[in-house]
Design a protein around this nucleic acid. Structure first.
Lengths: 211, 211
DNA sequence: GTCTATAAACGGATAGAC
DNA sequence: GTCTATCCGTTTATAGAC
């Protein structure tokens, strides 16, 4: 426990460098030098660069999704949860598990990078499958007055908000006029939940799609 | 005009391959072979691979942003536009400029990739600067009853919806239960506008961030 | 403008000693 | 588990003929 093991140092360096410079732009030579170990250590501990980046993402994503499901379990054990409760169960674990906004930003950037790659070796959807299934059902139950097809569309719009809003602190500062910071996780959470609740509960678009 | 020039064929191939396989994962050899021209043509027409991908993005983004601003000009010339009008002016040019969802998906994937790269040679924010400034002002005017700080936060949440919702047709199909398709741009537009309007106009979070 | 040929460097992965 | 040394393919970019 005292010193981080080589494997953990590799995960730490990989998370930081992949997020900051990009997965493809970071060579295993830079990475192992940053981690203070030998080039061959990557192959020994993870096998390939692809397996390493998946391990990096999984280390952050799995506990977040486990906490999401635990919170949803607790809510549903107490009755039918309100929409805002389900939203908080979904969003809070991501924001609260990390001390500062930089950690959330790293995870978001890593996730976005993998999302834009079609390499079958880099598939990461399975990390979210069970969570997605459970929460889609919960949102449908919390929105009985909205057409389910509309709810599906809106969940599709909700995912980018959660996945991407904190992926770039500069964009966040610029678009928010310098008033928003991912470091203030409590405010970020409250604002995100109110925004998403408003979007999910909005009046449905009229059939004609009027001007 | 009859045959696309080598330069245009390079832009076409680059857009498709960068979006489908990734910028870093696509070599100039594959790219020039796909475009039916010589490897050295990239250097002749664009200089570097980085300049090429920026040209690819700019070719799609600039006309979209010009149309966004033109629509906003027209709205504001006729008085103070409603929130939904401003939203449609912002979202419709992206969805309507391309015949099918695949084209929107390519542009979105390309944008997301560049967003996750910190290489100074790949900065693309300037493509959006004037558009962002104008629309932020328009949203503030269309939401006089909402605290401006809250509006900034919500614009920050809105950008990921527009940028990322159509970046992955598989995710769209999965999360929407197979009911949503980016090919139906009219429905996509109507759903996105109603979602964003609901989020932007939602009741503000209470100071206490109550449960 | 387009080509061939090549420079010059870097990439991930691995064998085998310790 | 960690190291050195190296294999071997690939990369972007360019020089120079046509």
């Amino acid at each position: 426990m005292s010193d981080p093991s080589t494997k953990e140092r590799l995960l730490d360096s990989a998370e930081r460098l992949f997020a900051e410079r990009g997965y493809a732009a970071t060579s295993l030579r830079e990475l192992t030098q940053d981690a203070g170990c030998n080039l061959a250590a990557v192959n020994y501990h993870f096998g390939t660069k692809e397996a390493l980046v998946l391990a990096v993402l999984e280390r952050r994503v799995r506990p977040v999704n486990e906490e999401r499901l635990a919170r949803l379990d607790a809510l549903e054990a107490a009755g039918t949860p309100q929409l805002e409760d389900v939203l908080r169960a979904f969003v809070a674990p991501l924001l609260e598990r990390h001390r500062d906004g930089a950690a959330v930003e790293r995870v978001a950037r890593l996730f976005l990078q993998l999302s834009t790659m079609r390499d079958p070796e880099l598939q990461h959807y399975r990390l979210f499958q069970s969570t997605a299934t459970r929460f889609v059902a919960a949102f449908l139950r919390a929105l009985p007055e909205v057409d389910p097809v509309t709810v599906y569309w809106r969940i599709t719009f909700m995912i980018p908000v959660v996945a991407m809003s904190f992926s770039d602190a500069e964009r966040l500062a610029f678009l928010s006029g310098g008033t928003a910071s991912a470091d203030d996780t409590e405010r970020a959470l409250a604002h995100m939940v109110s925004f998403l609740a408003g979007g999910l509960r909005a009046p449905e678009p009229t059939a004609g799609g009027a001007a």
